[in-house]
Design a protein around this nucleic acid. Structure first.
Length: 924
RNA sequence: GCGGAUGUGGCGAAAUUGGUAGACGCACUAGACUUAGGAUCUAGCGCCGCGAGGCAUGGGGGUUCGAGUCCCUCCAUCCGCACCA
């Protein structure tokens, strides 16, 4: 009997696509463009598991659908090829990371090809290729050559800043820059040496070197950005991370903090992602106020969002790392303060965080004076105050802030109620904003919001404070003490960085003997011979972080081979921005934020015309592992089936999910999986060994990795693709479960047999016109499929296919009139299968560029409405109505229908919507 | 603690604007065909009940002729942020 040979068919068509460059696209102004993008993968050594392609399958379906709707679809793929695993493998084995990366990419491409994706591989990019990172370096140069002008609210070329300095100094400049910039005049500027001028400019550049507290990971020997640290451990590898002060390259992303928030309003991204970004940026409105230190000309500046509570301040707290500490500490307190700071320094970030509840701190011996009341207020040091946020000092209001409250209780400091409605208990402060101010001098009787305005006006008038917006977002650390990354295109003269010329790019990654730091602790690039500029000055030793290359790759796909520009104006104008971006939500505060930052920068500088790169973003859910277990009896070579395990003293043992089907263990395979089970005894239920299961992360050690290659081999790519869609909503996370894949496989065979002779492997199609019933099935399907795909309900569209094919199968329908639109409809799901059929029809030329109006079924009037009415005595019916009839006419037409009666029970429906042409359909 | 999401049969799940809850698939049951098979086909399949019928979308309450869907409240699970002043 003839059957569908998926392996032959798929291989044949993949070859055909490749040879005929079917999926290569070029600029075509006659068609609307559609740019649909997947997050490019890091090619790890483990290859793709069954979870990775989920998003790729969805975007491939939409790509094919859009092509059939007449769009010119850009659907590229590439590799985020710089990364830590290849470097660590290199450290262990000495193998150059480029070789490892090349091998892994080869494997990835093979797997992706087997899955039948319609990528334009001619546009592939790899971030580790010099022809690509040349342009990453070029963008770095642009950032270095720019400053952020708050007045125009955009980045500008550094020359405009130099021009101002030369003419008027920095008095009229309103820039985002380092905190320690002094005021200077044009005379000052012009008198400075070249070196001094460069040092000053560095404080303004959008990428700059500054002494900053960084996340240092000793195990990895490198710094990490905030988003690469999770709970005090490195995201990759899970090594402890400590704070350390170092001179570092940074990117002034904080300049864009506000625009990164407001920009979210105009893009169609999932609300959780937007919230995470807003949270991460952490904008808060408040004020900064100076508290003068008693018997000193110094002062402590604090940031507060609740300046209304200023009369409730009963002490001040300064972070242990704050510079001001040295001026505050009195001789008597010197020892305890130094001890406390030493302890705080040695505590890792992790310890500090896990120890949130312990209250600790020391008194400095100094007092400040309350700016309004002039009262003496003691100054303490405590590590609950973070050096990195605000000014590193807080005014403590124990009545309104829980942390201040706990501190006050612990050290027996006064707690003053300042709002009449405050309910302060023995253990809890009350942060209310309701009520009226009390015990608050000039603020008495005001509501807190009024008090905020009045207090700010007061401090501004006194010149001791200012209204201030604060952000949680920090500048992004840009240098990594690693080998496998983009070299930073600068060289140093007298410690000042100078850029390489454009024609000196790319600055290629040099060869090194080992991928480890040098003996004196310099990064691996310190091992390279002649790592210096042509004039003999040294190059930078750190490389760029992983997010550099991925922050602009979506533009490179538009014009990947261009060696004059990162992409031509023509390509950028045509493709504009990504219309549909699919990827994981784990990149919310990393890649997805950094690339918005770079996009806005490139926009400011006029290189691109969009300031958001992705119109719509969808997060595919994560596929988790579904581990299987067998239950071994303690101290015996005996395994008990799941249902009986409680009758014995057992413990669960992971078993390879690939030797378990429908939770039934293949006992023979198990014996070779665990050789020591060769002579094991199995306690069965109903003659079967049933395994238990649990949802865990997919990983080799849990034996729950399902390899897509095996499934493609067994069932074909089409089956796997459809099954992954069938699994559930695309956005939802779910455990992988191969149970049920047979159902999809059966469906595809059924479809194939509709048009193939049962006895011989022969394609048979009838030229008879389709019957009314057959057409109804077809058009119903077309309508549903279009709706399903457009609202991204790919799981139901698979179901709808199955239903239609089953119905047609029941009618033994093999008509050409059905087949052609079916094939187009089916194409997004079963590219190999359907295109095979299509070619047999002799249309293989057209399918790939076709624009058929098949998705416009005209038998239903658009904008139809429902009119609730009784049908068959039940209180429910939908009547779909056309336009231009009165309510009475509609009703009489409806009532003319044999099954429809007038509404009689209860109140009439509230919603009586009547309008359009005529009654087109009564749905019972 | 703050923010977000999810909760429907034995399982994955459908239900597009409030209108026959459980489509489709898996698993299961019975039957047919068969060289007895992990193939194919047919039928059944939420729960209780012989039945008529009753009860069912995490729990409780509300709006409505009508609620999985809208509102209030509680519970559970998952994710993100977390001493951010």
């Amino acid at each position: 009997m003839a059957e569908y040979k998926h392996l032959e068919v798929e291989k044949k068509w993949q070859q055909y696509w490749q040879e005929n460059k079917i999926y290569e696209v070029s600029i075509d102004p006659s068609k609307p463009k559609y740019y649909i993008l997947d997050m490019f993968p890091y090619p790890s050594g483990a290859g793709l598991h069954v979870g990775h392609p989920l998003g790729y399958i969805a975007t491939d379906i939409i790509s094919r659908f859009k092509r059939l709707k007449g769009h010119n679809v850009l659907h590229p793929m590439g590799f985020d090829a710089f990364g830590l695993p290849a470097e660590q493998y290199a450290i262990q084995t000495g193998q150059h990371p480029a070789i490892t990366t090349e091998t892994n990419i080869g494997r990835y491409k093979e797997q992706l090809t087997n899955l039948g994706f319609s990528y334009d591989w001619s546009r592939e990019v790899r971030t580790s290729e010099p022809s690509y990172y040349k342009w990453t370096q070029w963008i770095f140069k642009q950032l270095f050559n720019s400053w952020y002008n708050k007045d125009s609210d955009k980045a500008e070329h550094i020359d405009t800043l130099i021009a101002s300095f030369t003419k008027t100094g920095n008095h009229s400049i309103n820039a985002v820059c380092d905190d320690d910039v002094p005021a200077f005049s044009s005379a000052d500027w012009n008198s400075w040496s070249e070196e001094a001028q460069q040092r000053m400019l560095l404080k303004y550049r959008l990428t700059y070197i500054a002494e900053t507290t960084v996340n240092w990971c000793p195990a990895l020997g490198t710094v990490l950005s905030n988003d690469e640290v999770k709970d005090g451990f490195s995201e990759r590898g899970g090594h402890p991370v400590v704070k350390k002060s170092m001179a570092q390259w940074s990117m002034r992303i904080t300049a864009y903090a506000d625009r990164l928030i407001t920009g979210l309003d105009k893009i169609d991204w999932p609300e959780p992602i937007k919230d995470m970004q807003r949270n991460w940026i952490g904008k808060s409105y408040g004020a900064e106020v100076d508290f003068a230190i008693e018997n000193s000309d110094k002062k402590i500046r604090v940031f507060t969002t609740r300046i209304d509570t200023i009369y409730g301040v009963s002490f001040m707290v300064v972070a242990p790392e704050a510079e001001i500490v040295q001026y505050l500490t009195t001789p008597e307190q010197k020892q305890v303060v130094e001890d406390y700071i030493a302890v705080a320094k040695n505590r890792s970030e992790r310890e500090r965080m896990s120890d949130v509840k312990t209250v600790s701190g020391v008194f400095t011996g100094s007092y400040v004076l309350h700016p309004f009341s002039g009262e003496k207020i003691p100054v303490w040091i405590a590590d609950y105050v973070l050096a990195g946020y605000g000014t590193g000092a807080v005014m403590a209001v124990p009545s309104g802030d829980q942390r201040d409250f706990d501190f006050a209780k612990h050290f027996d400091l006064p707690i003053v109620q300042i709002i009449d409605s405050q309910k302060i208990t023995d253990t809890e402060a009350d942060a209310t904003k309701e009520g009226r101010m009390i015990n608050s001098g000039i603020l008495d009787g005001l509501t807190p919001p009024e008090a905020i305005d009045k207090a700010i006006a007061e401090v501004e008038q006194k010149g001791i404070g200012v209204r201030k917006v604060n952000y949680r977002l920090r500048d992004a650390i840009f240098g990594r003490q690693r080998y496998w990354g983009e070299p930073i295109p600068v060289h140093f003269k007298n410690g000042i960085p100078y850029l390489l010329e454009d024609n000196e790019l790319p600055l290629n990654l040099p060869e090194v003997d080992k991928y480890l730091p040098t003996e004196d602790g310099a990064p691996p690039l310190g091992r390279a011979d002649n790592w210096q500029y042509k004039d003999g000055t040294p190059y930078e030793l750190t490389t760029m972080p992983g997010w550099a290359g991925s922050s602009w790759y979506f533009f490179r796909y538009m014009d990947p081979d261009n060696d004059q520009e990162f992409a031509s104006e023509k390509a950028l104008d045509y493709w504009q921005q990504v219309d549909f971006y699919m990827g994981g939500s784990e990149h919310a505060t990393g890649h997805l934020l950094y690339s918005r930052f770079w996009t806005k920068f490139l926009y400011d500088m006029g290189f691109i015309k969009v300031d958001e790169y992705a119109k719509k973003l969808v997060n595919q859910g994560m596929i988790q592992g579904r581990s299987n277990f067998v239950y071994r009896v303690k101290n015996e070579n005996k395994y008990v089936s799941f249902g009986l395990r409680k009758e014995f003293d057992t413990y669960p043992v992971h078993v390879d999910v690939n030797i378990v089907k429908d939770d039934i263990l293949d006992m023979e395979a198990f014996k070779s999986f665990r050789p020591d089970a060769e002579d094991a005894e199995f306690v069965l239920e109903n003659g079967k060994y049933i395994c238990g299961w649990e949802v865990e992360k997919m990983s080799k050690s849990k034996y729950n990795v399902v390899n897509p290659d095996d499934l493609v081999e067994k069932y074909g790519a089409d089956t796997l693709r459809m099954y992954e869609m069938f699994l559930g909503p695309i956005e939802q996370s779910k455990p992988w479960n191969t149970n049920g894949i047979e159902g999809v496989y059966k469906f595809l065979r059924k479809f194939w047999t509709l048009f193939h002779n049962n006895r011989e492997d022969e394609f048979v199609v009838s030229d008879e016109p389709a019957s009314k019933e057959e057409l109804k099935i077809l058009h119903g399907l077309l309508k549903k499929i279009e709706d399903d795909i457009e609202r991204l309900s790919l799981n139901t569209s698979v179901s709808n296919f199955m239903i239609a094919v089953n119905e047609l199968g029941a009618l033994s329908c093999n008509k050409r009139a059905i087949l052609e639109p079916m094939v187009i409809t089916l194409a997004p799901f079963a590219p190999h299968l359907s295109e095979e059929l299509w070619s047999l029809l002799g249309h293989n030329e057209t399918i790939f560029n076709a624009s058929f109006p098949v998705f416009d079924p005209t038998h239903l009037v658009e904008d139809s409405f429902e009119y609730p009415i009784m049908v068959n005595g039940k209180m429910r019916a939908k009547i779909q109505l056309g336009a231009d009839l009165s309510k009475e006419e509609i009703e009489s037409q409806a009532l003319a229908h044999p099954n429809v009666q007038k509404w009689t029970e209860g109140k009439p429906p509230k919603k009586v919507i009547v309008v359009p042409k005529k009654i087109v359909n009564v749905v019972v």
